[in-house]
Computed example of a mutant assay.
Amino acid sequence: MPVRALVVDPSAPAAVRLAEVPEPVPGPGQVLVDVSHASLNYGDLNDARSGRVPVGAVLGSDAAGVVVRAAADGTGPAVGTEVVALTTGAFAERVAIDVDALAEVPEGLDLARAAALPVAGVAALRSLRAAGLAPGKRVLVTGASGGVGRYAVQLAARAGAHVIASVGSAARGQGLAELGADEVLTGLDGLRAPVDVVVDSVGGPQLVEAWNLLAPGGSVQSVGWTSGEPAVFPPYATVGPAKSLSSFVIEGAAGADLAVLTGMAAEGALTVEIGWQGTWDRFDEAAEALRGRRVPGKAVLAVTSGASR
């Protein structure tokens, strides 16, 4: 029996359309999940146009819903368990998901907010971990008004860092001080003192500026490139005291980190901000808002009629 899904179609306005696909057949270590909510990321929009996800394939990585078939090998959650996952092909009514790619959704966290955690939350958590986050360090988060940025600000602040949030306009900076930012800047104007950690989702000239501000021994984690502009380093910019620029991608199963993030969100220790929410047949509208940087936090799509929990 086919299920509906958002698939890649270069002829569609946002290169994505609703279509029917075969119902997934789970492997021994997979559960079958009825998806109620999915979260849209910049990477999904790029995947739809770049060819990384083939034409006709199901798009998406972030999903939350209810287990309707337990794993045949006896691992993972039972039928009826609410879960959130980071998995390929997430934008479908029903998805087969590896048990180590998901986490149970705790009481106190609704499925819409849970769906907003996987890619952005795991990217923030792991990039800060890779950069050597520690109390007292100066942490610069660029593109801080977006999904990754807002989580990175909160996680760095909770770790005892001095957090500098960089945004594209003053309006985009609203609410970041309340999330833990010690400084909120438009671009990097006024920032002179060196920083120890940079979580960069902007790329382009701002990445070069951030590199120049990095203290010896510091680390830039390149998690995105929303500017779409090239980064041109002047001669000798990379010659000097040791510091690093690291490319970042989420690798390996995300279940354990999702458990940490959902636990924090359920306890109120991590704020999940949804800046756009609607049904998945409004995908084009959500994509346009995200590309136009009109979404503070995350854009969440309701996938099924049971999505009002």
Rank of each mutant, 00 (worst) to 15 (best):
S201N: 11
V195G: 05
V202F: 01
L213K: 12
L191Y: 00
G187M: 04
V184I: 01
G203T: 10
E209T: 13
R192N: 14
D196C: 02
V198C: 06
A193F: 02
P194F: 01
L188Y: 00
L213Y: 12
V208R: 03
W211H: 10
G187S: 13
R192L: 13
V184T: 01
V202W: 00
L214W: 02
R192G: 12
L185V: 14
L191I: 07
Q206E: 15
V198P: 14
D189H: 15
A193V: 10
G187F: 00
N212C: 08
A210D: 11
V195W: 02
A215I: 01
V199P: 15
A215F: 01
E209M: 09
L207I: 01
G190E: 04
Q206N: 04
N212M: 14
P194I: 14
V202I: 13
P205R: 00
S201F: 04
V184H: 04
R192D: 15
V198R: 04
L188A: 09
V198H: 01
V184K: 05
N212K: 14
G187P: 10
T186D: 06
W211E: 03
D189Q: 15
V195Q: 05
V202T: 05
L214K: 09
V202Q: 12
A193Y: 02
W211M: 12
A210K: 10
G190N: 04
L207Q: 03
V195P: 12
L185N: 06
D196R: 01
L213Q: 09
L185C: 12
P205T: 03
L213A: 12
W211F: 07
D189S: 15
D189C: 06
G187H: 08
Q206W: 00
V184F: 07
L191P: 05
G203Y: 09
V195I: 07
G190P: 13
T186P: 10
L188G: 09
L207E: 01
L191Q: 14
G203N: 11
R192H: 08
G190A: 02
L185Y: 09
V195F: 03
G204M: 05
G203Q: 08
G190Q: 04
P194G: 09
L213T: 05
V197P: 09
G204R: 05
V197Y: 03
A215N: 02
G203E: 13
A215G: 08
D200N: 11
T186A: 07
G187R: 03
L191T: 11
V208I: 10
D200I: 10
W211G: 09
W211Q: 07
V195A: 05
L207R: 01
D200M: 12
L214S: 07
L214Q: 06
D200R: 04
L207N: 01
P216M: 14
L214R: 08
G203H: 09
D189E: 07
V197M: 06
L188H: 01
V197S: 05
G190H: 11
D189N: 11
P216C: 13
G187K: 06
D196I: 05
P205A: 03
W211P: 03
V202P: 02
V202Y: 00
V195S: 06
V199I: 11
L188C: 11
G187L: 06
P216T: 06
D189W: 12
T186I: 13
V195M: 07
V197E: 03
L191W: 02
L207M: 03
G190R: 03
S201W: 06
L214T: 11
